[in-house]
């Protein structure tokens, strides 16, 4: 969804950026969801609140129970909207305060050991966590400018295609299932990120085995 504004690389990373990143992690982690007093406002599910109840005994929200088909699906979709609006609003604030730039700065030195792509991919990687099209577009640019090799592009694309636009999709479509989860919402999210990295490394192994042409080319750097 996002476009080229993510290509900017000159964003300053200050303590505010790190604070914003830390806030985002805490906010969506659920660690303050059962906190007493003011601390609980630092939690996504707390701020998300609850619907008023209707029906006998006041047990049902407006979706009711026992519905089926398109009508039930639509009302279910309606129940999701406040969460999606809140989540993407907060993520936008975190982004505006430089939280994602801070994540990029922390991630860049880890990219080579972790998934075998150069640190210059950091911006594209963070962009891909937000927007499928921004990440893919930037990957193409990185390859065409010679910053990454053919193999590195394949590894990077493998990282992206599993659960792409991770942040956006998890907190929008994925949010549909948050109410039914048996774990804090951050747990499946971390599992997803870990397995994105696993996928990239599977591709690395595969490419190593196949012995792609770029292996012999020293122009790779």
């Amino acid at each position: 969804m996002n476009k080229e504004h993510l290509l900017q690389t000159d964003e300053k990373v200050t303590w505010v950026s790190y604070a914003a990143l830390l806030f985002a992690i805490v906010f969506f982690s659920g660690i303050f969801s059962t906190a007493k007093g003011w601390l609980q406002v630092l939690d996504f599910t707390v701020l998300q609140g609850s619907f008023g109840t209707i029906g006998e005994g006041g047990k049902e929200v407006f979706r009711g129970s026992g519905g089926t088909g398109a009508r039930d699906g639509f009302l279910f979709a309606l129940t999701l909207m406040p969460s999606v609006i809140l989540a993407l609003g907060v993520i936008s604030v975190v982004e505006g305060l430089g939280g994602l730039a801070a994540a990029q700065k922390l991630m860049s030195p880890l990219l080579k050991p972790l998934i075998g792509i150069p640190g210059i991919c950091g911006l594209a990687l963070i962009a891909s966590l937000q927007s499928t099209d921004a990440g893919a577009g930037m990957t193409k640019t990185l390859y065409e400018s010679g910053a990454i090799t053919d193999d590195e592009r394949t590894v990077f694309a493998t990282f992206q295609i599993s659960a792409d636009a991770t942040i956006t999709n998890y907190f929008s479509s994925g949010a549909a299932l948050f109410a039914f989860l048996g774990t804090p919402i951050i747990v499946p999210f971390v599992v997803i990120l870990v397995f994105k990295i696993v996928g990239a490394n599977l591709m690395r192994l595969y490419l190593k085995k196949v012995g792609q042409k770029t292996k012999n080319s020293p122009a790779a750097a």
């Binding site: 979709a77 309606l78 909207m81 999606v84 609006i85 907060v90 993520i91 982004e95 929008s172």
Partner: peptide, 22 residues
């Protein structure tokens, strides 16, 4: 920033999630 992101959320919910969920 919040309102821009929130609007994006509303668009995603309305145009992507709701039709697919139905």
């Amino acid at each position: 920033a919040f309102v821009i992101g929130a609007r994006r959320g509303l668009n995603v919910a309305l145009n992507n999630i709701a039709p697919n969920v139905v």
